[in-house]
Design a protein around this nucleic acid. Structure first.
Lengths: 218, 218
DNA sequence: TAATAATTTTAGATTAGCCTAAATAAAATA
DNA sequence: TATTTTATTTAGGCTAATCTAAAATTATTA
């Protein structure tokens, strides 16, 4: 198997290339893994030799098939553990990330598949992110940023693109959790902030910055 | 916190000194941790500097208070995870050791205390070993080896002192699991093997070697 | 108790993952 | 396009945990 550290690099590359599909740069990886560019170069050489990535000097990096496979598997584990922590152990959605970051490296296919069954094969984790199934398949839902919605539009909060505790706690305070039905009441031209109605009851104003990180199913 | 490796050394010292209360030797630790004596010496110096052990060159080693504390905590985690794997995920008692060996190093007091509550604060793990409570207290039951019982004596199988999969699978096959009521039917003088009656139904013969590793509550 | 055997420690190397500083390549801009 | 800036890589080192081989200590036994 791959080392703890190798797994973290693969995960970082996966997250950075999601959406873009572009090659990921050394500096991006360094930032995400809290290391220096020189250390990243070292590791890229190693991952490249193991055929987990496609790496050309100075040209950035993409995951190979086996690298992608490994990355998705780690993400599957991370999200299943997060689900477990919230649903079974009563953690809040802003408390689980760091613990799942450790649990995701536990190495046993049997364990994770049994956990999956025990949890009822959930489709999404507590932040609305899809959980890859045991074959590595991810069911991406088409989600829209609140910041891209028009006045009058409605939708259901189904995900977030920022996972920090500060942000999640804010949403909690605003009453914006997964499943909340929202309607765009007004778009403030001045600073791009948005007034929305939650569950046809409460009115709240959120900044454009916050709106960008809330994902909605229309 | 302590490194993964430091934790494994502390655990090894704990297990080796349990019962004996004697100082543990470098070679014993090397054997238990699958390393060489020279590596152990290096680590003992390190643990000693951290005041986790009492170490005098050539004289063996004992755990200090803080070392004992750390060791018991790891054992608490190991046993709670084993309980989880068997009771919630349907693993068999001979399958859980290696996975728990990884899970025991996950670092979160909140996690382990919530897991404890989720599991109903179990007193013993799937092998009958006592689970330390959150303050580190261990309720040792007075258990007797089957090899020390006399003909006619009865008891309940309550633990094992050998945790290998081979051994546990054998017990399974013999119908000797935790909670089985046994009675010593006959002691065979020739080789020390023992004939016993399980749950007042089945008669089985076990070798002295097996009998030594089954623990019974009288 | 002196010699031998066994155990433990020291000395010196190795590997993974990280670092800083310097060199090189690519991108941006004048 | 030449120059400057930025990004990336190389070179050389560091630390934790391991190893082998040799030296030192303790234990055993003749």
């Amino acid at each position: 198997m791959h080392s703890f550290t190798e797994e973290n690099y693969l995960k970082a590359i996966y997250h950075l290339s999601e959406g873009n599909l572009m090659a990921v740069s050394t500096n991006q990886i360094a930032e995400m893994t809290n290391t220096k560019a020189a250390s990243v170069t070292d590791m890229l050489k190693k991952l490249s030799e193991k055929k987990l990535i496609n790496y050309i000097k100075y040209q950035g990096v993409t995951l190979s098939n086996s690298g992608l496979n490994a990355a998705v598997n780690i993400i599957r584990k991370h999200r299943l553990w997060e689900f477990f922590l919230v649903e079974k152990l009563g953690f809040k959605w802003d408390e689980v990330h760091d613990i799942a970051e450790e649990l995701e490296h536990i190495n046993s296919a049997t364990l994770i598949n049994r956990l999956d069954d025990f949890l009822g094969n959930p489709a999404v984790d507590p932040h609305g992110d899809p959980i890859p199934d045991r074959s590595g398949l991810i069911k991406h839902k088409k989600l829209v940023k609140v910041s891209e919605m028009k006045a009058g539009e409605q939708g259901t909060v189904s995900g977030v693109s920022e996972h920090s505790s500060v942000f999640l706690k804010l949403l909690e305070k605003l009453g914006l959790t997964l499943g909340s039905k929202i309607m765009i009441t007004e778009l403030i031209e001045f600073d791009g902030s948005i007034i929305l109605t939650i569950n046809q009851k409460t009115d709240r104003t959120i900044s454009r910055e916050v709106a960008k990180n809330i994902l909605v199913m229309l």
